[in-house]
């Protein structure tokens, strides 16, 4: 899932400083699961903004609404009236949600309430870890299901650097060395041969380096046309 964290209240307040009427929009998908921008967090943020701006002597009118998914037109179309009724929208969606609202409502001023952090999973209660950088060319089949692009600080493809010690990365003792994990996994499966060959330079054109990415599925487009 997409993992995010809420911005500090002061930063959000500075983003909405010029507005009178504010709408906080929560999202019911990834950011709900990671407790950053769901219905509950939208409610808390709206009430914090109300109280805080009142204490500052310039109370703002802050309302909130949560949609199932901010990244699909049909869900954000449903809150058209609320959006058109305010000066500013604070999206508690990920970066995709913020941009979807901004794109769908060209006149609306939309600001982010979250910092979108990474693609990852909760490894235990209250802990999320990055697992994927969406590089567009998955190599997990060669690395025992452990991604060195997302999990090695140097994105190495041919084994650990000299800073791997006692299973942890040189940059932080809380970060496991991805290549130690890969080595242990493949060793336990008698598949170490997978990392003995030299991996050639990666084709980064499928990653963000190739520019903004887009997928077009002609089969689905044809099916949609046929049903119209």
């Amino acid at each position: 899932m997409i993992v995010a964290e809420q911005k500090p209240l002061e930063e959000i307040k500075s983003l909405i400083a010029d507005a009178e009427k504010v709408l906080v929009v929560g999202c019911g998908t990834c950011v709900t699961v990671c407790f950053a921008g769901g219905e509950k967090e939208a409610g808390i943020l709206a009430s914090s903004l109300r109280m805080s701006t009142k204490l500052d002597g310039a109370p703002k009118e802050v309302t909130q609404v949560t949609v199932q998914r901010q990244c699909e037109w049909e869900y954000i179309d449903a809150i058209k009236d609320q959006i058109n009724d305010v000066d500013i929208v604070v999206s508690l969606g990920c970066g995709i949600g913020v941009q979807a609202i901004a794109e769908r409502y060209p006149k609306a001023v939309v600001v982010p309430g979250l910092n979108t952090s990474f693609l990852g999973l909760p490894t235990e209660q209250g802990v999320w870890e990055e697992r994927c950088v969406a590089c567009g060319e998955c190599i997990l089949g060669l690395t025992g299901g452990i991604c060195p692009i997302a999990r090695c600080a140097k994105q190495l493809l041919n084994g650990p650097c000299g800073g791997s010690q006692n299973g942890v990365c040189e940059i932080n003792p809380d970060t496991p060395c991805a290549w130690q994990l890969i080595y242990d996994k493949l060793a336990s499966q008698n598949r170490l041969h997978l990392i003995m060959d030299i991996q050639p330079p990666k084709n980064w054109s499928t990653s963000r380096d190739g520019g903004p990415r887009k997928i077009t599925r002609e089969d689905l487009r044809l099916a949609a046309e046929a049903s119209e």
Partner: peptide, 16 residues
Amino acid sequence: NPFGDPFEFRPYRLAK
């Protein structure tokens, strides 16, 4: 780095 970990993999990394 003969002293990096995984120690057993180091000669193979050199081989690469």
